[in-house]
Amino acid sequence: MIKILKYTEYLYLVVAILAIYKIATLWSVNPKETYIFIFFAVVSIAMFLFRRRYRKRFEQRKKNNQH
């Protein structure tokens, strides 16, 4: 289960990178269209950090219960 959590957190990073790329390409054409991608980038980065912190806590708790 921990491996699945690790992959999902990196999936959020991929979404953030794609959103940032889309922001960079659309910004000069139509800045109003980029607001949704800015939202996706911010939420994806926040979810990456949240999931990473949650996974590390889960691993630490599992490690402490084994000893």
Results as ranks from 00 to 15, higher is better:
Met1Ser: 11
Met1Gln: 08
Met1Gly: 06
Ile2Asn: 13
Ile2Arg: 12
Ile2Ala: 11
Ile2Trp: 10
Lys3His: 12
Lys3Phe: 10
Lys3Thr: 13
Ile4Cys: 03
Leu5Cys: 12
Lys6Tyr: 07
Lys6Phe: 03
Lys6Trp: 02
Tyr7Trp: 11
Tyr7Phe: 13
Tyr7Leu: 05
Thr8Lys: 15
Glu9Trp: 04
Tyr10Ala: 09
Tyr10Asn: 15
Leu11Thr: 08
Tyr12Ala: 10
Tyr12Met: 12
Leu13Gly: 11
Val14Pro: 00
Val15Thr: 07
Ala16Val: 07
Ala16His: 02
Ala16Phe: 03
Ala16Lys: 03
Leu18Ser: 02
Leu18Gly: 10
Leu18Ile: 09
Leu18Thr: 08
Ala19Pro: 07
Ala19Glu: 03
Tyr21Trp: 07
Lys22Thr: 04
Ile23Asn: 08
Ile23Arg: 02
Ala24Thr: 02
Leu26Lys: 01
Trp27Met: 03
Trp27Asp: 02
Ser28Met: 01
Ser28Trp: 04
Val29Tyr: 01
Val29Gln: 07
Asn30Asp: 03
Asn30Tyr: 00
Pro31Arg: 01
Lys32Cys: 05
Lys32Ser: 12
Lys32Pro: 04
Glu33Val: 01
Thr34Met: 02
Thr34Gln: 00
Thr34Ser: 00
Tyr35Pro: 03
Tyr35Ala: 03
Ile36Leu: 02
Ile36Tyr: 06
Ile36Phe: 05
Phe39Glu: 15
Phe39Leu: 13
Phe39Asn: 14
Val42Leu: 13
Val42Trp: 07
Val43Gly: 03
Val43Pro: 04
Ser44Arg: 01
Ser44Ala: 03
Ile45Arg: 06
Ala46Met: 10
Met47Lys: 11
Phe48Leu: 10
Phe48Tyr: 15
Leu49Ser: 09
Leu49Gly: 06
Leu49Met: 08
Leu49Tyr: 01
Phe50Gly: 02
Phe50Asn: 06
Arg51Gln: 09
Arg51Gly: 03
Arg51Val: 07
Arg52Asn: 09
Arg52Ala: 05
Arg52Cys: 05
Tyr54Ala: 07
Arg55Trp: 05
Arg55Phe: 06
Arg55Ser: 09
Lys56Thr: 14
Arg57Ile: 07
Arg57Trp: 09
Phe58Asp: 07
Phe58Met: 12
Phe58Val: 03
Glu59Met: 09
Gln60Cys: 05
Arg61Ala: 15
Arg61His: 15
Arg61Val: 15
Lys62Arg: 06
Lys62Asn: 10
Lys62Ala: 10
Lys63Thr: 06
Asn65Ile: 06
Asn65Leu: 11
His67Met: 15
His67Gly: 15
